[in-house]
Design a protein around this nucleic acid. Structure first.
Lengths: 270, 270
DNA sequence: TCGTTTTTGTGAATGTTTTCACAAACTTTT
DNA sequence: AAAAGTTTGTGAAAACATTCACAAAAACGA
């Protein structure tokens, strides 16, 4: 599954006077030591951040009998990415790589999980128990990403009071207060487009600071609240355009959001 | 909903000798006349292509009583994008814009639909009738994007033979032959990760040229077959990172895949 | 111990996308 | 009819991301 999204930006803080080769203990990728803990040095590009969970997933799903170390080249080959890109991405969250040896898999997994915040439990609510809401509620894999849906909300009285995958369905009127009282940090919006903005407002009012919206509309949110719109239409556009333009069977390798190619050609095959 | 993805690339064919101001009849945005029809001149960037459905959706959902014309500035404000970006994006698929007037909404909608291929009927099959598969099968809004799911496939004998939202569920063994016989162009993969590659192979063997995969694995596909991976983990990564880093309530405007900001800051608030 | 080999990490170069600045064109007003 | 005021469209500049080329480090072997 792929996503797209954002955060606010600030200017890169690059020290251009820094010598090319500092001792490794001082310049550790994009990381720096701070109170004994490795911290990201403040800037990760959106595209890198989007690739990180893919690395994590790849590493987690490596066969049991794989060697304890893995090279950037192996990861790159497995995911269809550039070798240097993998190294740069990893360097921005970890410093466990060792020349000649590669990366110790378990340590790298830990660093990725730590950086992505998958270790912490993010409490979430889901709003809109329709088809998609039901599917997401029933999916138990979110825990792998540190995401825990603790309740669902809907307007449908037939659903209110029931439990889906052990999560209670509550009336949408209680959305704000529930979020505030339970310290919910993230809201998942699977409501119809027309209801999305008001639900988003309710979430924001309840102190929720991140909204994952599946509604096909642009939402306004107060400062401090991040709205991530999952845009299936964009995916379909790419597929549809491919079908429209590459009607003959042109050569084409696998492509996805992670790959490096950039242009979507119109007619030539070379 | 947001997406990410790809196509193969070719080199930009920019005529740097072209004078700055050609007559409008010859240089029409990124378009050119070809047999009387406007054709995209071969190059649309992936990011532009991903934004196009958002414009389309925004225009379609404009209130009934809106004026017949709209300006790039209005669209930009409504979607939280840059004004010039909107103009450039639109220029790559349409030439209905007029100075001082803006864009006639209905004509622009038509151009977007035509470019995105939403007019044509893309026949699709869905493989894997689990939670997510069920949700997508039940969703009737895909027709809006020119997508028509005509059948579903699964291994579960309890499901085979039934109908979901009027679509028959067939045994996965028939996947290849069904696709070939019915001229299916697109396959939607909502199977578990372990089954994804084999289903993808079956689709490719059946002549399917575009695969929309929700499985969290990298798929290999033969040349000519485009694999678009919908990556929910990437979306969650961005949200999770936001929660982790902006723990205090820092100023933050809405952000999504379409917005213009680029860097995801780590600590400063400006 | 020292050289060889492999692999990481990164500065610089290259390529892509967005933003800026402004010419052209259309509409309206005088 | 001409001038004024908007709004489009785009070349050039800036910002951003990827790839290249190579220095440094670790492992291994002689």
């Amino acid at each position: 599954m792929g996503f797209v999204f954002f955060a606010f930006y600030r200017y890169l803080f690059i020290d251009k006077t820094r010598p090319k080769w500092m001792p490794a203990s001082e310049r550790i990728g994009n990381l720096r030591k701070e109170g004994g803990m490795l911290m990201a040095s403040g800037n990760i590009s959106r595209l890198t951040l989007q690739r990180l969970p893919t690395y994590l997933s790849y590493l987690r799903n490596l066969p049991e009998d794989s060697p304890p170390n893995i090279s950037a080249a192996a990861i790159a080959a497995g995911l269809g990415l550039g070798e240097v890109q993998v190294r740069k991405d990893i360097a921005s969250v970890s410093n466990v790589g060792k020349p000649k040896t590669g990366y110790p898999v378990s340590a790298l997994i830990q660093d990725l999980e730590h950086f992505l915040g998958y270790g912490v439990c993010n409490r979430a609510v889901l709003v809109g128990v329709g088809n998609l809401g039901l599917a997401l509620l029933s999916y138990s894999g979110f825990a792998e990403y540190g995401l825990h849906i603790i309740a669902a909300f809907d307007v449908n009285h037939a659903l209110i009071g029931s439990r889906i995958n052990q999560k209670p369905v509550l009336p949408v009127e209680q959305l704000s207060s529930f979020c505030r009282e339970s310290g919910v940090q993230l809201g998942i919006l699977t409501v119809p487009a027309c209801a999305a903005q008001s639900c988003c407002n309710a979430l924001a009012q309840g102190g929720v600071r991140a909204v994952w919206s599946f509604a096909p509309v642009h939402l306004q949110a107060p400062p401090g609240v991040l709205v991530q719109r999952e845009n299936m239409a964009s995916s379909l556009a790419l597929l549809s355009y491919h079908l429209k333009t590459q009607s003959g069977s042109l050569k084409e390798s696998e492509t996805n959001s992670l790959a490096a190619e950039k242009k979507i050609g119109g007619k030539s095959n070379g």
